[in-house]
Write a protein that binds this DNA or RNA. Structure first.
Lengths: 335, 335
DNA sequence: CTGAAAGCGCTTACAG
DNA sequence: CTGAAAGCGCTTACAG
């Protein structure tokens, strides 16, 4: 069963390939093809099951109608939710997604960008620090690109993310209002901008309320290994028995922190209050359920695709390269 | 900055495009191009940052080096883990992944297959029932395809999945050995083959040990809505207070079941033992931790890609279309 | 409205 | 080893 080409359809319809092409691409009005002929051609296309070869069209037009999504790790809940949201939105406007995980490996990330360059109309990237140069090249070569979740501080590339500073500030204020004074802040991956923002904001907010104790800030090196943070958190907590609340900068830290708390037999919220940045299914089910700051994943996806489409259509970018979205505190029983 | 083409590279190297093409595709030996010339060409490619246009190559060769992955919902843990595993394996052998979620929507699933048909060299699909016809067309047209996690019983298409029957049987036996006799089995999505297998196997194994009570089997209609099963499970449990163990056929049922148990204040394992098919991060952290049957996700991915590659390379398929992989019981504290 | 043709950037069979 | 050329399947500017 040989694949049909536009020529075959043209022959069947008794016209030239150009005419078929115009009908396929919805230009029959513009090209003043009779509605009758257009209908006939559409019927033949349907009956034969003809599907245009997109490689050929791409080669000719330079457009692929594919968006390249490069995230850190698709098996991570945040990224898979994000990917799903982007996919849904992109699908509705006629784009597909090619996605890849960088594993926080700058080399792989850069390689992926180069590999996909000609095969996608634009990129959505949650960049690691070392991808900066490659991302800049994208920008230079005029390839549409928008960053999500992370950004490069000193570079003019649009990005969309939750307002980390405001979110952490609200978190600290919530803790403060509930009467917590000895608040630990546990964070990792400080090479990432969003983490730096969270840390800076914690310090500023705690200082403002005069409850900042640098001793209570635990900065852990990033690790992809399972359970990597648990021991560090436990020994940290042991050393600071007067802690009355813990603010985890990410959900995976919180999850491992909960384990450490189980082992130490510190009751929540009796002994310590717990607050996590980033929600997680576990938090709803845990006893007690864990209060969390939820990122607006769908909004991030929506805004990201919107900005990318604006670039892809060649229109001017919206004023201002940064889009900061509001988070939401989900009050549960751990505070 | 105009994009370079193979002609530009050829001009820079003082050769014809063919020669460059051979070097790019690693055929310099075969074509007896001098190592010296090959080196020179490779250097120019590197220096200029030239990247071959894959649309053009695809148009010419008919190969895209892309695998289409169609899953139910990428934001679901099982599928995102599977996608990640497939991506890793495919990447190592020079393939990229285009993925899409069907949302269990047959129409969207079939549409995706058609849309991707010419853009991928092969498909990996976790099919829903209604995609059968479209998958069969794939097979007819000679497109490599392998099914994961689900299958079509009466059709000759290779598939890879966990041995659901054996896994459930081991689960029942574990429960029986531990002394549980009034075992409830809670299941949903019975239109899916793997679910049918799990149910059939539960019945057979329970019958064998003479502990089968049809009253204790709860078959719920599938629902994508959050928390959809919780109420049904709770009222079911209330009606059968003598249950001494619950075997959940999937992790999402177990998670909602745990909530129901919390509300009923049935202690685990004091009042009931709990066993779940499919592991989940939550189970490790829950108090008590939940014993689960873990699917070999990496193995499924590896085997799936392997079978697909065999098909893509035009080699004969391995004997037998079904590949059943062993699961593993992770013993925790809920039994 | 229709036709004829060029060209996107590759790969490869063929001739030397 | 090198050269010249065809052709993959489209889209589009041009001529009628």
């Amino acid at each position: 069963m040989k694949q049909l080409s536009i020529k075959d359809i043209a022959r069947l319809a008794g016209v030239v390939p150009s005419t078929v092409s115009f009908v396929i691409n919805g230009k029959e009005k513009e090209m003043r093809i009779s509605e009758e002929m257009a209908k006939k051609i559409r019927k033949i296309i349907k009956d034969t099951g003809y599907i245009p070869n997109k490689s050929a069209a791409s080669l000719r037009t330079g457009k692929t109608h594919v968006i390249g999504l490069i995230v850190e790790n698709i098996s991570n809940r945040f990224f898979s939710m994000l990917a799903k949201a982007i996919e849904d939105i992109a699908y509705d406007v006629g784009y597909r997604l090619v996605y890849c995980s960088t594993e926080n490996d700058d080399k792989k990330g850069s390689e992926l960008i180069r590999m996909l360059h000609k095969q996608v109309d634009g990129f959505i990237i949650t960049p690691s620090k070392g991808m900066k140069e490659e991302v800049l090249k994208l920008k230079t070569s005029g390839k549409p690109v928008v960053l999500l979740d992370r950004y490069f501080a000193d570079v003019d590339i649009p990005y969309v993310l939750v307002d980390n500073k405001k979110s952490v500030k609200s978190g600290v204020e919530l803790l403060y209002e509930k009467g917590y004074k000895r608040i630990a802040f546990i964070i990792t991956a400080l090479e990432q901008t969003q983490m730096q923002d969270r840390l800076a904001s914690f310090k500023a907010a705690a200082k403002k309320h005069d409850i900042l104790d640098p001793e209570l800030i635990l900065e852990l090196p990033f690790s992809a290994q399972e359970g990597a943070y648990e021991n560090d958190i436990r020994s940290f907590l042991k050393k600071h028995k007067d802690i009355d609340a813990i603010f985890f900068a990410t959900n995976y830290l919180a999850i491992q922190g909960l384990k450490a708390l189980q082992e130490l037999n510190w009751k929540i919220p009796g002994k310590v209050g717990v607050l996590s940045f980033d929600d997680h299914e576990i938090f709803k089910l845990y006893t007690p359920s864990i209060t969390a700051i939820n990122q607006p994943i769908t909004e991030i996806a929506k805004k990201g695709v919107e900005i990318l489409r604006l670039q892809m259509s060649g229109k001017a970018e919206p004023a201002g390269q940064a889009t900061l979205l509001k988070s939401e505190i989900i009050n549960r029983k751990s505070l």
